[in-house]
């Protein structure tokens, strides 16, 4: 691979890592931590069962 191709590949990898981590934290926050009443009510039992602090 040329240097340019290596750089593009490295950038893609970093972007994949960052986007997966950001999306992952977003999902965990919404289901496990959000103080929204709707999120709490829907996720109530799973929050308790997974051990997230609840109420």
């Amino acid at each position: 691979m040329t240097k340019a191709l290596v750089a593009v590949r490295a950038n893609t990898e970093i972007l994949a890592i960052v986007s997966a981590v950001v999306l992952g934290f977003g999902l965990v926050f919404a289901a496990g931590f959000s103080h929204s009443a709707t999120a709490h009510d829907i996720a109530h039992d799973s929050r308790h069962a997974i051990g997230f602090p609840c109420h």
Partner: peptide, 25 residues
Amino acid sequence: RHFGTFGSNLVTYTGFALIMVAAFL
């Protein structure tokens, strides 16, 4: 109520999996 529990488990574990697989890479 149990649909909610099922769905929020899917969301939570998908979140965990995304973080774990990012760490794989």
